[in-house]
């Protein structure tokens, strides 16, 4: 575990906590894409099936369990408890446009043609694009609450920090996972436009709004 990896994980954890706190305090999930949250639950579920097959550390197991549990809890809040505040009209991105191609790619390009390995690969590919319904929603409404932009910034920073972690691991541990690195770069690139808006607007105290 290097400092980039730890900061990445903490950023990911922070993002989830910001999202839960926003929903809990405001009793609302307005501006949040339920599609993205469903995709994240699918990502965590397919990736962390190794909870049953291998043990890495208490830290690793705890984080995995938290990510899985929080993703399903978020879905429960959005589609049940705070359903009335869910902005489904603006959450119109079609999940199958992501899940189907990503599933096909996971079958074709993977480290080993084994069920768990294919599911792991699927989760890595799916995570890289899972934010698209959320970004689509922000662009459709043309704005995002400040707390939502903090959530997105923390979530985007996590994979960027993981890239530094992979560079570090490559040089110091001779460690390299092409699938994770390529998908991680794609994932980070998708946030670039948002990062720019966050730095130029939100950090200067303005609300994130897109030009009409």
């Amino acid at each position: 575990m290097n400092v980039f990896r730890l900061l990445g994980d903490m950023s990911h954890l922070l993002a989830i906590l910001i999202l839960l706190l926003k929903m809990w305090k405001t009793r609302s999930c307005a501006g949040i894409s339920g599609k993205t949250q469903i995709l994240f639950a699918l990502v965590f579920t397919t990736r962390y099936l190794d909870l049953f097959s291998s043990f890495i550390s208490i830290y690793n197991t705890t984080m995995k369990l938290f990510f899985i549990a929080s993703s399903y809890f978020t879905i429960f809040l959005m589609y049940s408890k705070f359903k009335a505040t869910y902005d489904s009209n603006h959450d119109s991105f079609r999940m199958e446009f992501l899940v189907v191609p990503v599933g096909g790619l996971a079958f074709l390009v993977n480290h080993e043609f084994l069920p768990l390995e294919i599911l792991w690969t699927f989760s890595i590919y799916l995570e890289s694009v899972a934010i698209l319904p959320q970004l689509f929603m922000v662009s459709k409404t043309g704005e995002a609450e400040t707390i939502t932009s903090h959530y997105l910034f923390a979530l985007g920073s996590y994979r960027l920090l993981y890239i530094f972690n992979w560079v570090y691991r490559y040089y110091f541990d001779g460690f390299f996972d092409l699938i994770a690195v390529v998908a991680g770069c794609v994932q980070t690139i998708l946030y670039c436009d948002f990062f720019y808006l966050y730095i130029t607007k939100v950090l200067k105290g303005k609300k994130l709004s897109l030009p009409a």
């Binding site: 990896r5 890495i56 690793n60 984080m63 792991w120 972690n165 001779g174 996972d177 699938i179 994770a180």
Partner: peptide
């Protein structure tokens, strides 16, 4: 380059 997978990550 030898490719090792990152299963110890989250």
């Amino acid at each position: 380059i030898e490719i090792i997978s990152t299963k110890d990550e989250l």
